[in-house]
Design a protein around this nucleic acid. Structure first.
Length: 214
DNA sequence: AAAACGGGGGC
DNA sequence: GCCCCAGTTTT
């Protein structure tokens, strides 16, 4: 077993032991692809609680992409206000229904190559939509995954794409649904961006403690 | 490769 | 005040 396999296994064990909420949420939530897409898109650089609150409010007004066509930019901004980068994201939501209709016949696509053509959707968001909405195994590299892999020395680049490729084939057979959540969880509680709690870390024996992306 | 986009919450 | 928040787009 290589070093990276052991690290992933340990992070997953830590998460499963602590019964972190992400597990239940991913497995039990309703998974309307449109709502998953919107929620995931809005969640960028924003706390989950904030995103959840906004989504609950937003989905009372918007239940399909058709509803987005009837909202002005100002209205959209007001609806998603507390979320980070709300102006940019409101513009993305405004363009979303048109791109969906013109390029995908109104159907949320199921491949990453197609998903990243949607406004505001990059590789991380696209992969997360595959995982949550379609239950398709995928590695989505957010800042936590990227930072942890860099500190471990498993990758040596600044690009998250190379990290994603490096982790392909490392998806566990059993709990692959929460593979990404393990990195997020460990990144939030122990392997923090600026001030990691290295004294609490029992995973990395060879850690470079590299600061990456905050 | 770097900058710009950003309000909100915790300590 | 500093840190942190499951990034994407444009320079």
């Amino acid at each position: 077993m290589t070093n990276i396999d052991k690290v992933i296994l340990q992070m997953m064990q830590v998460m499963l032991q602590n019964k972190l909420p992400a597990i239940d949420r991913i497995e039990e939530e309703s998974h309307d692809p449109f709502k998953v897409l919107v929620g995931t898109l809005l969640s960028a650089r924003t706390k989950d609680e904030t995103t959840d609150a906004v989504c609950r409010r937003l989905f009372k007004r918007v239940s399909s992409y058709h509803d987005l066509k009837h909202l002005s930019l100002i209205e959209l901004e007001e609806l998603i206000k507390p979320i980070g980068f709300y102006h940019t994201k409101a513009r993305h939501l405004q363009r979303l229904p048109h791109v969906l209709e013109e390029r995908f016949a109104g159907i949320i696509p199921r491949t990453i190559e197609e998903l990243i053509l949607l406004p505001g959707v990059g590789r991380k968001t696209a992969n997360l939509v595959l995982v949550i909405a379609f239950k398709i195994p995928a590695v989505c590299v957010d800042t936590h995954v990227h930072r942890i892999m860099n500190r471990l020395g498993y990758v040596s680049t600044k690009t998250s794409l190379e990290t994603e490729m490096a982790l392909r084939g490392k998806l566990p057979v059993k709990h692959w649904l929460v593979f990404n959540s393990c990195f997020v969880s460990y990144g939030q509680h122990v392997c923090l961006p600026r001030n990691p709690r290295c004294n609490e870390c029992r995973i990395f024996s060879e850690c470079e403690r590299v600061g990456v992306n905050r």
